[in-house]
Amino acid sequence: MSRIQKTLSALKAQGKTALVPYVTAGDPRPNATVALMHKLVEKGADMIELGVPFSDPMADGPVIQKAVERALEHNVSLDDVLEYVRAFREKDNETPIILMGYLNPIEAEGYEAFASAASSVGVDGVLTVDMPPEESMGYFEALNQVGLDRIFLVSPTTPESRLAAVNQKGSGFVYYVSLKGVTGSNELDAADVARQIERLQDKMDMPMGIGFGIRNGENAYQMAQLGDAVIVGSALVSLIEANAHCDLYEIELALGEKMTEFRAAIDRADALNVQE
């Protein structure tokens, strides 16, 4: 069982929903990332999604685009991101880490070289936004070989006919994109998500994570009742943006506060389930 699978099944056994924060690696500067990751864990993160900066983040909204631009000002590369993970693992060997990004930096490195480097530094899963299950060409095999989980997005527009491929090629969990839009949009419709999750649940042999558009405790509370994991990105990254020029301490404080809000909301939702 992978670290992601272990974490999610342990939480499930306790009736808990995972909180999964996203930050862009190297944002607002390279030496902040490892410290911020530890802070996220301290404030209740069950897994971490680490964004790999790419010059053309086609599926990201303005908040994460700007985060990526901040990181790229420091020329943060995929190799650097793997180095942050290695450093993080010196003190934390428990929290699963998922790399989220686009295919081209991985193509440049080579699938097998990337897969073995990522698994050796302690990455647990990879989500590649512009690599659908159909185009595998050896990529997913390379990840599978070294035991990296393959996380796929499923969206409100994903037809039934494609779910089987996602279920077959994916592992760890399925990431349900809770709205039509880029990261950071705010059109979250809880009733619609509930309908969709119901449609998906019995077609997937994996836990369901829900992300995109979860900006506050209220959203997180609703989503925690529907999925096994709640993924929050732009809401945190916009706080990094607001404090980009401040001391690390200030960034940690801002992120910590927001994480506490999310954690409390999710715990409240989980308590509700236990009562039922």
Binding site: M58, A59, L103, V129, D130, M131, P132, E134, E135, F152, L153, V154, S155, P156, T157, T158, P159, R162, V177, K180, G181
Partner: peptide, 21 residues
Amino acid sequence: HGHFGPYGGIFAPETLMAALE
């Protein structure tokens, strides 16, 4: 599947896959 030898294909975000199909 849109391949010209090793080139082309569909490397798109999930939300667009149905529309492209």
